[in-house]
Design a protein around this nucleic acid. Structure first.
Lengths: 160, 160
DNA sequence: CTTCATGCAAAAGATTTGCAAGTTC
DNA sequence: GAACTTGCAAATCTTTTGCATGAAG
């Protein structure tokens, strides 16, 4: 990174870059151009994305960031609290950019793959309850509901 | 399968074999020796297991069931409701044998990997609530709490 | 200049597939 | 016999690593 970075980048992305830079400094690592490009690509993404889509995004954009660099950077971004590995029910590894977003969980359509986000405070409360019941200090959770969405129910063939 | 199958097998395993056989019949597939051996190995397992551990079990036991056959059989067992892919937070694909067991969710220690199972009816109720709010027909859910278990908290170095 | 980062290509794993030979109905 | 299975090896895919070269402090 030599010139003024992050031109044309929105506020959330800029904040993410700042947070990442702080995080890296703490470990004597550096915010390089390649890493910044990956942050920008991740922040531009919505919802869940498999790693190779992120790599494709990078190729389309500036062209910087090799596959290996992306693989090396994603765990750092996760540790820095910028993104999270997404629940995987067997398919390819995916991530979700969580920086600057409210916590939410997901409702996934098993037919069409549509993802609906929901927030429901009662879950958070009960989760703390369960953790404390077992003496655990709660750090995170994965919660995903799977079902058939209204559209797919409508287009469904009558039960055979 | 020619000789009397399932000798020395417990009731739950026998029921699983029966269910699987019915499932296979519906599709004009067959309950072969290799498939039965995989069912037995899966039913003998507790908790989460990566695929290669199941394969190792098979090698130890009767020696039948090649890697490819196991990979081909696991999705069938999942469809038959005998096991389920386990939540994966990034590592290797694992399964859990659910046949004949109460539904439960998991509390996982992020330090030592210990897994505690819990049942909490309130979650189930709220999940139905959320699904119906969005018009989804609920089919399944993945719910995992991540934290530090009591033992690991005790053995923890004082905060630096 | 010393340490860290990158890209490429090779390596390592995990999963899937093609196919000839063996089973089951 | 026709249809379904299996095991093996080869083919794919995904992710990780080694290393020489290029930046950053």
């Amino acid at each position: 990174m030599s010139e003024g970075r992050a031109e044309g980048v929105d506020g959330r992305t800029r904040e993410a870059l700042e947070r990442f830079e702080r995080f890296l400094h703490q470990r004597d690592l550096r915010l390089t151009e390649a890493r910044a490009a990956i942050v920008e690509a991740a922040l531009a993404r919505q919802g869940h994305y498999p790693i190779d889509e992120l790599i494709a995004d990078l190729k389309q954009r500036g062209i910087r960031g090799s596959k290996a660099t992306v693989y090396r950077t994603l765990p750092l971004l996760a540790e820095a609290g910028i993104l999270e590995p997404a629940i995987v029910a067997g398919d390819a590894r995916s991530y979700e950019t969580t920086f600057g977003r409210h916590h939410h969980d997901h409702l996934v359509c098993s037919r069409c793959g549509r993802v609906v986000e929901f927030e429901f405070e009662a879950f958070e409360i009960l989760q703390r309850e369960v953790a404390s019941r077992y003496g655990f200090r709660l750090e995170a959770h994965h919660h995903e509901l799977v079902g058939t969405c209204p559209d797919c129910q409508a287009g469904e063939p009558p039960r055979g």
